[in-house]
Design a protein around this nucleic acid. Structure first.
Lengths: 226, 226
DNA sequence: ACCTGAACACCGTTCAAGT
DNA sequence: ACCTGAACACCGTTCAAGT
């Protein structure tokens, strides 16, 4: 009898790292980081909690893998951009949007610096900084500033979204409440915060985010030769 | 009999919000966010876990209170600065240093936007941006960019510190390991990351941080009148 | 008013035992 | 090689009962 040429295919519903990651993303999107539980996950995958550990090392590992799946897709699908500046803006906006759609990604990324998801972002940004003419010896500093800013904004937005979710109000009501609290602060101690409370109430996170990117890009632009 | 003029003083070792916060900071400094536990805390304070809930609402509340104590002190003690730019730098560096000394602060702050600790920072930065001549209607955007950047860097550093702690290596060994991993990435896919791996190995977090602040300040500087 | 500490309803992770 | 599920060692939070 010849060796079997028909490979026994995996049971279609058998576990795999990818299926676990996919189910994790669904749980995270549904109910935030608190919703990602080995018990909830194993129930959704019709298995036991122990089975998951055959495919992933631990929860931190799982969170990074979920972030990476989401970030990789965002980086692959973002527009090219006519100039390096436009390309950086496109990358940044793609990241903003993905962190907005999956609020858990921001805080997960913040806890995994230097890991694969961050490396993908650094690569994309770095190539554009090169094209922009940032000198070799300041490229790390430049990309690091952009990355920190992007992750910082993502983290804040994630926290705002989660806060609003827990309190059961929508995002703009939540901003409104914060704005009210700010305008009732002691005028002697917090004059500035009071004065921007109104701006804060109606501000646009996405526009503010892009304004910060432009500030950084302006600082990075090559000096005009004369 | 006249009313007692001697107020019965609190038992010196009785619980209070301040004492709980103080003990929390010690636990957090010792063993990170995982070390802050109601059981560990109540043991250190020689009481039961339930007693703590008389003084604080929950763990999130406690973490914000601990951050606020640490941030308030940093904001009070930071130098004045001769120019608005110098003052912003001084504020930023004070925050960098306090997040470096207490690595849990960065991630705690990232999860509490708009709360008191962040408000303190916004006030301090905002006053300087006014002095810098940033127009009223862009002051929120400007302060928000600075804050996001500062918290972003703080979060990254916190994660690096915690990573190194868990792995039991020191920080620079940890950066070295990451740098090695980066230089072994696929050259076709990650040319930029490979090229900055050496810069990354020897980079100075504090200097990089300040460089980012300067980039933002440069973008915010008033155009030179001619 | 403030504290006690057992109890509740969860966690992540491990591991002997199965197939 | 991969999966099962009970068990372990924890959590944050609550609450009747005390003082």
């Amino acid at each position: 009898m010849p060796p079997k040429t028909q490979r026994t295919p995996r049971r279609e519903d058998s576990l795999s790292r990818d299926r676990i990651v996919e189910a994790s993303i669904a749980l995270l999107d549904n109910s935030g980081e608190a919703g990602l539980t080995f018990r909830a996950l194993s129930e959704r995958l019709a298995t036991g909690p122990g089975a998951l550990y055959w495919h992933i090392a631990n929860k931190h590992d799982l969170l990074i893998a979920a972030s990476d799946a989401v970030i990789a897709q965002a980086m692959d699908s973002c527009a090219a951009g006519e100039t390096p500046q436009a390309a950086v803006r496109a990358i940044a906006l793609a990241l903003f949007d993905v962190m907005d759609a999956h609020p858990w990604v921001g805080s997960a990324l913040a806890r995994a610096p230097g890991q694969l998801p961050a490396v993908r972002i650094v690569e994309r940004l770095g190539q554009q900084l090169r094209a922009l003419g940032v000198p070799d010896d300041t490229q790390w500093t430049a990309v690091s500033a952009l990355l920190s800013y992007i992750l910082g904004v993502g983290g804040q937005n994630a926290a705002n979204a989660q806060f609003a979710r827990v309190q059961g109000v929508n995002r703009s009501d939540f901003l409104g409440e914060l704005s009210n609290a700010w305008s009732q602060l002691d005028p002697a101690q917090y004059p500035f915060v009071r004065s921007v409370a109104e701006q804060f109430r109606t501000h646009d996170d996405r526009a503010d985010f892009l304004a910060g990117i432009d500030l950084l890009l302006k600082g990075l632009a090559p000096r005009r030769s004369r």
